[in-house]
Amino acid sequence: MTIRDYAPADWQRVTEVHDAARLGELAASVGVEAFLTLEQTYEGEGLFDGDLWVAELDGRVVGFLAFSDAEVTWMYVDPACHRRGVGRALLRHALERAGAEVELTVLDGNDAARALYESEGFVVTSTTTGRLVGNEAFTATGHEMHWYRERTVS
């Protein structure tokens, strides 16, 4: 597996990965009625506001992670590649480049993602219910999670 910077030529695959994975994410939480494509949401949700990395398997983009201001803002993996270490590799790539603290939000019901984050040291710091980011016509519950770099005492 290769993790690398996003390139404009990746756009088509990134949209395919997002759209397939987002449907699964919403099915387990808010409901698929809330689905909007990446093309519909990327500008308003700031996909390109920070760093954007893609994961490749056999030369094909199978996942991506966006990171901005100490926050994982987007992470999606092609459902055909779930449980193959893609999300973990992307997350570790971001954490290696992060400062002392990282935050993210995971939708209630997205148990596989939450389990991944917890296995990498994230802890739930708050749970809130409000408008679904990207499609404010829907209400969602999200768990804000934080990761803290271990500090060494000298």
Results as ranks from 00 to 15, higher is better:
Asp51Glu: 15
Phe64Trp: 11
Ser29Glu: 13
Thr105Leu: 15
Gly59Asn: 05
Asp19His: 11
Tyr76Phe: 15
Gly99Thr: 11
Gly87Arg: 06
Trp53His: 05
Ala27Lys: 14
Glu45Ile: 12
Asp19Trp: 10
Leu104Gln: 07
Met75Asn: 04
Gly59Phe: 07
Gly109Gln: 05
Met75Lys: 04
Val86His: 03
Leu36Trp: 13
Glu16Trp: 09
Glu56Ala: 02
Tyr42Glu: 07
His82Ala: 04
Leu91Arg: 11
Gly63Leu: 12
Ala89Ile: 00
Val14Ile: 08
Glu103Ala: 09
Asp51Ile: 01
Thr105Lys: 14
Thr41Gln: 15
Val14His: 01
Val32Ala: 12
Asp69Ser: 07
Arg13Phe: 04
Gly31Leu: 15
Trp53Lys: 03
His93Thr: 12
Glu96Met: 09
Thr105Trp: 14
Tyr42Cys: 12
Tyr117Gly: 01
Leu107Asp: 03
Ala21Val: 11
Val62Arg: 00
Leu57Arg: 13
Phe67Val: 10
Thr73Ile: 05
Val30Lys: 12
Arg92Gln: 13
Arg22Asp: 06
Arg92Glu: 13
Glu39Ile: 08
Ala80Ile: 00
Arg60Ala: 11
Trp74Met: 09
Ala66Leu: 08
Thr73Glu: 06
Ala20Asp: 08
Glu103Trp: 01
Leu26Pro: 11
Asp111Ala: 13
Leu65Arg: 02
Leu90Glu: 03
Ala28His: 11
Gln12Glu: 15
Leu95Met: 09
Asp108His: 09
Arg4Trp: 08
Val106Lys: 03
Val61Glu: 08
Ala7Cys: 12
Ala28Phe: 03
Asp19Met: 11
